[in-house]
């Protein structure tokens, strides 16, 4: 117990003194999470809308496939992207491996199905009268889709936040594609894994507390949106 209490005290000191290693890991985490969420939303929102609004024979299998993609292990995504961006891979020439951009790419692939699924759920939960109402008032198909997105805006924002929540807390993709390079690709989660393996609990706990705060903030925002 004394060891844990000591670690907790040391972690509090790291947070209050704004330890550079801690700040760097927090910054890298937020940076890659932000951009990967943007990328995932650019893919996931249109995908969820398309699946929700269209009608085609393979719609059900497509939704099942999308659901399955949300459960793909992060290390598998890491492995897959690694294969593409490693020196021998088809995208090896871009020199992406062990850069923040590599983590962004992997995290976007991880989060896109989540954003798509939440968007799909929002479309399915929307009032079925929205699109016909817009159409009968003279809207084009595109304008009616904009009206729908506007009406389910809280659901779409919740989808984006869920995507962010997923990527900010994952470790597999960041470790495999970022390489956990100090001050460059070291995120909160990879730093926690490393520091713990070294027996340096204080920094791990400090980062864990920050991560917990971020996760808590994300959940509070989600909860507030669900009240709307």
């Amino acid at each position: 117990m004394g060891f844990l209490a000591e670690s907790l005290r040391a972690s509090a000191s790291l947070i209050t003194t704004l330890d550079p290693d801690l700040l760097s890991a927090v910054w890298v985490s937020l940076y890659v999470s932000f951009w990967s969420t943007i990328l995932a939303s650019a893919i996931g929102i249109p995908l969820g809308l398309g699946l929700g609004l269209s009608d085609f024979s393979l719609k059900r299998p497509a939704i099942t496939a999308l659901n399955s993609l949300t459960a793909v292990p992060t290390v598998l995504i890491g492995l897959l992207v690694y294969g593409f961006i490693s020196r021998q891979g088809p995208l090896g020439g871009f020199g992406l491996l062990f850069t923040p951009e590599a983590i962004i790419l992997g995290d976007a692939i991880l989060a896109a199905p989540i954003v798509a699924n939440f968007t799909l759920a929002a479309v399915r939960g929307a009032d079925p009268a929205i699109v016909p109402t817009a159409l009968t008032l003279g809207a084009t198909r595109a304008q009616s889709t904009v009206a729908l997105v506007s009406e389910i805006r809280f659901g779409v924002v919740a989808a984006v936040i869920s995507g962010f929540g997923r990527v900010v807390s994952e470790v597999g993709v960041a470790m495999m594609l970022g390489g956990n390079i100090r001050g460059f690709t070291r995120t909160m989660t990879t730093a926690i894994a490393l520091e713990t393996s070294k027996g340096e609990f204080a920094l791990g706990i400090a980062l864990g507390l920050v991560l917990l705060s971020v996760a808590f903030a994300v959940n509070v925002i989600l909860h507030l949106l669900q009240q709307k």
């Binding site: 009268a129 109402t133 009968t136 506007s150 009406e151």
Partner: peptide, 18 residues
């Protein structure tokens, strides 16, 4: 589209945008 712009349907439970 041009036909719908001449004809408007008022649903029984009209949907009002938020």
């Amino acid at each position: 589209l041009p036909l719908r712009r001449e004809v408007t349907l008022l649903h029984q439970a009209p949907y009002l945008f938020d």
